[in-house]
């Protein structure tokens, strides 16, 4: 009766298309006028029209767990790929590194699923992600990649110290996990750019390099927080340097691509996302410089690891929030599309 539909159930049946929408009780609705009303005389400005400065497109409804997943999934994927490579070409010297990478991959896979399910509007239906395979949807592709990745990384980690048949199964799973780690570390950038959000859409060519670079940095940073033998430390340092270079090149590419139309690139220079983006660049550069120092002490490696972790986290949160801001700005959408038309 009082749920906002104002239908008296004695006289009406709830049978419409939206009749099973879960809604709040009507007393919860704000019945007082909003504080924020459109502040000007409602007249359209001819030169630069918008509809009362209202957004054209909708903001992403995603919460913090999505950028957190971008980081966790990326780190897990890159670690698994490094682990598989060390398994194949590293010999027994790097065997402890292989095990560590597998556990990082398995933990990343499990944590990723939890973060993603947590963000769903109907978490109990998470398994519907595997109802279909839709090649036009990066999220559908990603769901399958994460499923195979999680299963193989999990098996690889559990059997990492087994011998005989189970050890062989673990090694096979390690290779599979390394294979699926590559798309896992990169598809999230396609997921974001495959949207109507101007800043994400315009960054579509460079964002994969930023995200994979950031994923490598993140994986190397986590490894740097653990005790490593000399040869392992050398491998991790090289991984961190290469990842850091890719990350910084990717960030420059994103700035260049989104900067072509100033209103589109604006969120990366202004406000909260702009600040996080600046912090990301400083932290990642710091991490890269420290990674280049040869023969680091344990403490130095830990500092490098902390910088790399924070840098990678900041990259993901900056890109995520830049997208939210971009969606709220109608001029970003209009100018992006007008630039395309002219």
């Amino acid at each position: 009766m009082s749920d906002g539909r104002f239908i008296d159930e004695e006289h009406g049946i709830l049978a419409g298309e939206a009749s099973h929408q879960r809604v709040r009780q009507s007393q919860d609705f704000p019945l007082t006028p909003r504080d924020e009303t459109y502040p000007h005389t409602p007249t359209v400005v001819e030169s630069d029209p918008t509809y009362y400065d209202k957004p054209v497109i909708k903001q992403a409804v995603w919460i913090w767990s999505v950028p957190a997943y971008l980081y966790v999934g990326g780190a897990g994927g890159a670690a698994m790929t490094l682990g598989a490579m060390a398994q194949v070409a590293g010999g027994w010297h790097l065997r402890p590194l292989v095990h560590r990478c597998r556990w990082i991959g398995a933990t990343g896979g499990a944590l990723s699923s939890i973060l993603l399910v947590y963000d769903l509007g109907r978490p109990e239906r998470f398994v519907y992600m595997l109802r279909v395979f839709r090649p036009t949807s990066p999220m559908s592709i990603g769901s399958w990649v994460l499923t195979f990745f999680g299963a193989s990384a999990g098996a690889a980690a559990v059997f990492s110290r087994s011998g005989g048949f189970l050890g062989a199964v673990g090694d096979m799973a390690g290779l599979a996990g390394g294979f699926f780690g590559m798309p896992l570390a990169g598809y999230t950038s396609v997921l974001l750019s495959n949207s109507a959000i101007p800043v994400w859409q315009e960054a579509r060519r460079s964002m994969p390099f930023l995200f994979i670079g950031s994923a490598i940095s993140a994986a190397a940073a986590i490894l740097n927080l653990f005790p490593l033998r000399k040869r392992e430390a050398r491998a991790v340092s090289t991984f961190a340097v290469l990842g850091g270079l890719l990350e910084i090149a990717g960030a420059a590419g994103v700035e260049r691509e989104t900067g072509a139309v100033p209103q589109v690139g604006r969120p990366l220079n202004h406000g909260v996302p702009g600040t996080i983006w600046k912090a990301a660049k400083i932290l990642s550069t710091g991490g890269l410089i420290l990674s280049m120092v040869p023969k680091k002490s344990r403490t130095m490696r830990r500092i490098t690891g902390v910088l790399g972790t924070l840098g990678s986290l900041c990259v993901r949160f900056a890109v995520f929030h830049a997208g939210k801001q971009s969606a709220a700005d109608p001029r970003a959408t209009f100018r992006q599309q007008r630039a395309r038309l002219s």
């Binding site: 790929t81 490579m85 950038s189 060519r205 994979i212 991790v236």
Partner: peptide, 26 residues
């Protein structure tokens, strides 16, 4: 999406090269 997937493919190759470089360089 094609441009984005192409970049993602190349960047994934970058990950593979970085891993190989790290392991072989050690």
């Amino acid at each position: 999406a094609r441009e984005a997937w192409t970049s993602a493919g190349l960047a994934s190759l970058g990950l593979l090269i970085a891993a190989a470089g790290a392991v072989l360089g050690s």
